[in-house]
Amino acid sequence: MKARRFGTLIGLVVLCLVLWALTPFFLTVSNLLNIAEQTSINAIVAAGMTFVILSGGIDLSVGSIVALSGVVLGLSLHAGYSPAVALPVMIAAGVLAGATNGLLIDRGRLPPFIVTLGMMSIARGAALLITEGRPISGFEESFRALATARVGFVPAPVLIMATVYLVAHFVLTRTTFGRYVYAIGGNEDAARLSGVRIHLHKPAIYAVSGLTSALAAMILTARLNSAQPIAGTMYELDAIAATVIGGTSLMGGEGTLAGTLIGALIMGVLRNGLNLLGVSSFLQQIVIGGVIVGAVLVDTVLKRPRT
């Protein structure tokens, strides 16, 4: 387990060293901050995804929830509400969509794959319906600061990402809820017989994923100065990839948030580096796909019992 985490970190470092050797533009402060900023949205979505995958589930609806909570935010702001009102409303929308996933999975005894696949379509449809398919653009500077402001030299999205990871890491490692996430993913029956109230915690786990999707939507909307009903497409796959590259087992019960952050950074660094090197975006997709499969392959080989 420890070796595996270091493995991912070593992978990230080696990747950075290779890119440093190949291009002088890679290892500059502005480029590294650029990577962190570009990674922030996927990393935040992946944090919630990690809760879900640790519990033995999967959430395919995160991208659509990003779009839905984004347009809820855009409409609220355009209706004249201040960010202090609009942000809680859009976060509530994300949490509600996530909790609905969890309730259906738990009470309906449905596979997470099916429920969140349905929510993927429903939330996307809802986002398109309430905007009639049109983007909502043009927001006040005070709101856009969430993406554009800098504290010292650190971009606001990077600070938000760091905060999300610190809080989520604390919740996962130091609270009963975090313990239950691991226990449910490791052995749901044993957890239930040990007094874990599954009915309460399963919806909460998916609500966390809805929450992080909404936070990602907040940054995305501020950065683009536009809330788009077609935003967030394929986010679920990037988030799952970051989580899995970070060493979280798709079977549940095993993994860390630190791993997920490293996984998201590997994907960000790889995209950035390939861009700097002028690799075509078509080839980039092939490389990233190879890295995902390769990371899990290494994981599986390392975990195989030695005989």
Binding site: Y182, A183, A190, S194
Partner: peptide, 17 residues
């Protein structure tokens, strides 16, 4: 199947309830 969360350590299993 029902008693242990095999991936968790001894202390966390004992403390779970």
């Amino acid at each position: 199947a029902h008693g242990l969360v095999a991936l968790l350590n001894v202390a966390r299993n004992i403390a779970l309830p």
